[in-house]
């Protein structure tokens, strides 16, 4: 459905024939996956024990393998996200007071800081992997419907669905305008001309989007829009979903037990 948000699976309602071929995780009830992922994130961020966090990262990795994520796109994502953490992880050993284990150009690294850095890295990656495996493979619109079925306010869900719907449209428009700029010899540099040009580009996108939203509103009114939207699909959870939920609950309790006992 959307290029920008990356390749995603087909809809969660697959027919019998496809179901046997699809990965198991993708055929589970989106609501269950969403809930499990949120609970997993909360549990992991509450943990402080190295052993438990390593286990959590293992679970995340296992889920990713299980979901058969495309290898290269996944690696690229993880590298990008980890480069964000790098600054924090590199400075932490030097800024946290504690027992000195080694020094580097007159900066002293502490054991506590090193552990803290490892903790942050493990937590972030464990959550990232589980997120990619459980929700990342969902189609964005399915995620929106699952959010609605989980009693998220309807207006927020519709905002979500509208945004998802038009991200791709405006990404294409952005690409077209960039192409037009390129054809006129625009090369981005660090100068005022670049900033002004890109500023105008954003401005034009806003202007066009407002005009488009007026057309959308008119089309909606033409079809009898009365301030309500209807979400038609009903999500049912089968025995497999229940088994998955129970297994995840046991795993989460196990993680907590390892971390705190």
């Amino acid at each position: 459905m959307t290029q920008v948000l990356g390749e995603v699976s087909r809809s969660w309602t697959l027919d019998k024939h496809q179901q046997t071929q699809e990965a198991f995780l993708q055929s589970l009830d989106p609501r269950v996956r969403l809930l499990v992922c949120v609970l997993f994130s909360c549990v992991v961020s509450a943990l402080h024990d190295m052993m438990a966090l390593t286990l959590a990262l293992g679970i995340g990795l296992g889920l990713s393998l299980f979901a058969r994520l495309p290898i290269w796109t996944t690696v690229r994502k993880v590298v990008v996200v980890d480069s964000f953490i790098l600054v924090l992880v590199l400075t932490l050993p030097f800024t946290m007071p504690g027992e000195v284990i080694f020094s580097f150009w007159g900066w002293e690294a502490s054991r506590e800081g090193l552990f803290r850095a490892a903790e942050v890295g493990l937590k972030a990656n464990a959550i990232l992997f589980s997120l990619m495996a459980l929700i990342g493979i969902m189609e964005p619109s399915v995620l929106g419907h699952a959010l609605y079925r989980l009693k998220i306010p309807i207006k927020l869900v519709h905002l979500f669905l509208f945004t998802v719907r038009y991200i791709d449209v405006f990404y294409k428009e952005y690409k077209t305008m960039r192409m037009a700029m390129k054809a006129r010899g625009f090369v981005p540099r660090t100068d005022l001309h670049t900033l002004r040009s890109i500023g105008y580009l954003v401005g034009m996108m806003l202007v066009r989007s407002l005009e488009r939203s007026d057309r959308i509103m008119e089309a909606m009114k033409c079809r009898g829009f009365d301030g309500r939207f209807y979400i038609l699909d009903t999500m049912k959870s089968g025995p497999r979903d229940r088994i998955f939920a129970v297994v995840s609950a046991v795993t989460l309790l196990g993680l907590l037990a390892v971390g705190y006992l």
Binding site: V4, H158, L159, F162, T194, L195, V202, S213, M220, G227
Partner: peptide, 25 residues
């Protein structure tokens, strides 16, 4: 509710704008 499409479309534009990279040094 009448503003929903407008806000949704504008927020899609801002999402796309956040993908734009500006060279800096």
């Amino acid at each position: 509710p009448e503003d929903l499409p407008r806000v949704g479309v504008l927020s899609a534009v801002f999402f796309v704008a956040s993908l734009i990279h500006v060279p800096l040094g």
